[in-house]
Design a protein around this nucleic acid. Structure first.
Lengths: 224, 224
DNA sequence: CGAACGCTTGACATTTGTCAAACGGCGTGG
DNA sequence: CCACGCCGTTTGACAAATGTCAAGCGTTCG
C-alpha cells in the first residue's frame, strides 16, 4: 500500500464558481489540487473580499485552518477543478510512522509562509507595473512547472480579480495590460495572454525584484 | 524531565542592532523570544529591505527557513534581547513521541500563515491611517498579552522602520502620528506612545477591519 | 558644547483611484 | 440564425492619497 492510498485521498469535483470551503467552515482536511484553477479570498468586515492567492495543479490548500480548526478564508474554483481531500487527522497519524512525511509536510507549510512573504513584498514595495509583471511571470512559471506552455495561457480571472490580488483597481489593471501590449511585452486576446518578450517583462521588475528570486541557492548575506 | 529540557533549549543573548540570523544563513533552529524586541526584514535586489514583522516575548522566529534549510530573511534585535534556540532536528524527533507536540507545532505554523494573511490585507486594502491604527492596536494587544501595559509603551522603532513595515514613507508616518495626536487618539513623546482613546482608534479602522474579529494588521511577528 | 540623528512640517509632484461613457464578445431567446 | 442585452473591458478626464524633497528643530550622545 503506498502513501497516497494510506492517506485516504478523497477525490472532489468543484465546478466553476463553487467553493471548496468558506471562512468559518470546520477544518478537517487539506486539499491537493489535481487539476483546475482556484482562488483564495479573505473577507473584510465591510463586505469586500481580497484575493490572497491562486492554486493550480500540484498545490495544496487549507493550511490556514489548522490553527483554529476552522478555515479563515474562502477557496473558490475559477474553472471546473478536481482536488484530493486529505484528512488532517489521518495525516498527523501517518507522519508518526512514515519516514519523511513529517518533514515533507513541514516543508510545505514553510513554503507557504515564504510565498506569503513574497506577496507582502509585492504589495509593499512594488508599483503597479512591477506587480503586474511579477504576476504574469509567476503564473507563467507555475504553468510551466506542470508541463503547460510557459509563454501562453488562459487567465480564468477577471481584471477585477487580478486587481484584487495585486491591490490595484480594475482600471489600472486594464491600463497596464494595454501599456504592456503597446510596448510589445505581451499579446492579449480576451483572457488569453501570451508573453512576447520575457526579457523586457523581467526588466520591468528590475530594481524591485526579490533578492531571493535571482539565484535560488545562493542568497546574499555575508556580513554578520 | 519536562518538554523544555528535552528540546535542549540554548539561550542566546542578542544585543541591540545585532542579528539573530540573516537571509542565506543555514537553518538549524527555531527561536522562541524570551524577552526583548526584534524585527524581521526581507531583502530586495535593489539593496533595500522591507520590515516584514516584529517579534516579542513568547513569539517564535525562523519558520521561513524550514523549506530550503536556509533562512530567507533577516532577524535583528531592536533592543537587547534573549531567545531560546530550539534545534529543529531535535524538535522533529520529539514530535514523534511527545503527545500533542506535533499538533502544537502545526498550530504555530498555521498561525504564522494566518498572521501573514492579515498583513497582506493590511497592505492591500487599508489606507495609511487605518494601517497606523491597526499597527498601534496590534502592538498594544501584544504587549498586554504578556503583562505589559496595554495603553502605553515604548516603540523601539524609528518612524522609518514603522513605515517600512506598513509600506508608508517616514513622512507619512510622522504626519499620521501628528494627526492622531491632534485628534486626541494618542499621546506621543519621543518613542513613547500612549493610547488615549482606544475606541476612536478602533473606529479609524472601522470599515477596513477583518470580518473575523482577529486583528489582522500588524500581528505577531515572526518572520517568515 | 557640538555634531549627528531622527523627527516634523511644508510645498509640490506623481501615482493610482474614481467615475463615467462607450465598446465588444457571448449567450439567450425570439 | 439573428438581435438584443449583459457582463467584462477599455479609455478618458479628473480627484485624492501618498511620495518626494528640502528646510529646520529637538534630543541624545560623545
Amino acid at each position: 500500500m503506498n502513501v497516497s492510498a494510506r492517506l485516504m485521498f478523497t477525490r472532489l469535483h468543484i465546478r466553476r464558481g463553487e467553493s471548496l470551503y468558506l471562512a468559518g467552515d470546520r477544518f478537517t482536511s487539506l486539499y491537493a489540487v489535481r487539476n483546475g484553477f482556484l482562488k483564495t479570498t479573505a473577507i473584510l468586515a465591510n463586505g469586500r473580499d481580497q484575493v490572497t492567492g491562486f492554486a493550480m495543479t500540484g498545490e495544496v490548500l487549507g493550511m490556514d485552518g489548522i490553527e483554529e480548526e476552522r478555515h479563515t478564508c474562502n477557496t473558490i474554483a475559477l474553472e471546473d477543478s478536481e482536488v484530493c481531500a486529505i484528512s488532517f487527522a489521518r495525516l498527523q497519524e501517518l507522519t508518526l510512522t512514515i519516514p519523511g512525511l513529517q518533514r515533507h509536510f513541514h516543508t510545505m507549510m514553510s513554503r507557504e509562509i515564504v510565498r506569503e512573504h513574497g506577496v507582502m513584498l509585492l504589495l509593499g514595495s512594488m508599483n503597479a507595473e512591477e506587480r503586474m509583471a511579477m504576476f504574469l511571470l509567476n503564473l507563467s512559471q507555475r504553468f510551466a512547472a506542470h508541463g503547460c506552455t510557459a509563454s501562453e495561457f488562459n487567465l480564468c480571472l477577471t481584471r477585477e480579480e487580478i486587481g484584487s490580488y495585486l491591490s490595484l483597481t480594475l482600471g489600472t489593471v486594464s491600463r497596464i495590460f494595454s501599456r504592456f501590449r503597446e510596448r510589445g511585452l505581451i499579446a492579449v486576446r480576451q483572457k488569453f495572454v501570451r508573453i512576447v518578450d520575457r526579457d523586457k517583462l523581467e526588466r520591468v521588475i528590475g530594481r524591485g525584484a526579490l533578492a531571493t528570486d535571482r539565484v535560488p541557492g545562493t542568497p546574499p548575506s555575508e556580513n554578520a
